[in-house]
Design a protein around this nucleic acid. Structure first.
Lengths: 211, 211
DNA sequence: ACGTGCATGTTACCTGCGGTAACAGAAGTC
DNA sequence: GACTTCTGTTACCGCAGGTAACATGCACGT
């Protein structure tokens, strides 16, 4: 066949387009229009559609790059050779540092422009809140089930915890990024304490039901 | 003045419109169009806009009803007169029962059609992931800080935990609702265990670094 | 009784989006 | 040199959110 020339130039073009899209999303947020992206890349819409199918395709391709980068960073943190508390804190800090450094990217990843078609209008509740979180939860769940002895049904419990912890990290990070009520280190410490079970070690206050 | 007649009928009309919108959102999901809502209500678009300003206004009004209802239910659960573990489990279960009973409503609340204007294209990272979660986190944070003795800076820690726990509940619930990997009771038990600190009580498994 | 407000309702339109069809050149291949 | 293929364009469709301008009904002050 020997279409390698064309293949390579096509791939290269694709990368260029993705970088242009990246710049626009970084500037305009997740609701960046296809027109804007095409303009930034110096071309017109139909080319984008030839390369990526539809907006969802472009956004998926764009998201994959950042997602993979973040996943690699977290993988390193989760494999660090320190004690468990330190490792949990390090993982949280890695995530928070990432979203702090590039809030626009983070925002884009969490809000992939709700592509989902109407489907059967009933039970596809999932997937609207970013595939990234799902992937993170799944991965973390596997890691936990692998490394912590949770008895029978441990795989399932690991998954629950994985998704739960990722959600905790995400929600707290989102709130923190908006309000900046404390330093990153303090946030990490508080969240780590929570996962350590300090909620159930702390004493109730005077009257009334403790939480 | 004596415009009470008109006032009352206006308020009543508003309620009727909200109920129509509710039906449509329940049927078509969060991307229900203004045209569809107007049609369901038996009128045309401009009336909706006169009552609610813009789509964001309608959705905010619509969300407030469900949000308030859910908040009341959670308030009851969080004030229950049982021990702490039972109370945590009950609160989680209340939330999960709600989203299980009406997934469409839940989905709508979490995805209020990204109204946010472009603003200054920079630092308004918050608010994209549903005001409901923020409100829940804030309320729970206050409750925790009120009832648990967390030492100096406890208010802030309470807020961090509030948002974190709500995020955990949300993410785990979202995942669970999509995959249905276990019963609600099992999910509640696992999450409660996590908040109890079982992650740090469990033993490491054989080789490699424990999580 | 009758005009005057005012809220309610309509039709018809604007803008901008995602997405597509149809056409116009340039380059490699036989 | 004809043929295909890739790249790029202009021009358009359908549908969304949102608005202007015009009609209608009902309570009022005199």
């Amino acid at each position: 066949m020997e279409t390698t020339q064309q293949q390579r130039s096509a791939d290269q073009r694709r990368r260029e387009l993705l970088e242009a899209a990246d710049r626009v999303v970084l500037r305009d947020g997740p609701q960046a229009s296809m027109n804007a992206i095409a303009a930034e890349a110096g071309i017109t819409k139909p080319i984008l559609y030839r390369h990526f199918g539809d907006k969802g395709g472009l956004y998926r391709a764009l998201a994959k790059r950042h997602t993979d980068a973040l996943l690699r960073a977290l993988q390193v943190a989760v494999d660090a050779d320190v004690d468990r508390r330190e490792r949990v804190a390090g993982t949280l800090d890695t995530y928070l540092a990432a979203i702090e450094a590039r809030p626009q990217v983070y925002r884009f990843l969490m809000h992939p422009a709700e592509d989902s078609q109407p489907s059967e209008a009933g039970f596809d509740v999932g997937r609207h809140s970013a595939p990234l979180l799902r992937r993170l939860g799944e991965e973390l769940g596997k890691v936990i089930a692998d490394r912590v002895d949770l008895g029978p049904g441990g795989d399932l419990v690991g998954l629950v915890w994985g998704h739960g912890i990722v959600g905790m990290m995400h929600a707290a990070g989102d709130w923190w990024l908006g309000e900046r009520p404390c330093s990153r280190a303090e946030l990490v410490a508080s969240l780590t304490d929570l996962l350590c079970g300090r909620l159930f070690e702390a004493e109730d206050r005077d009257g009334g039901p403790g939480f």
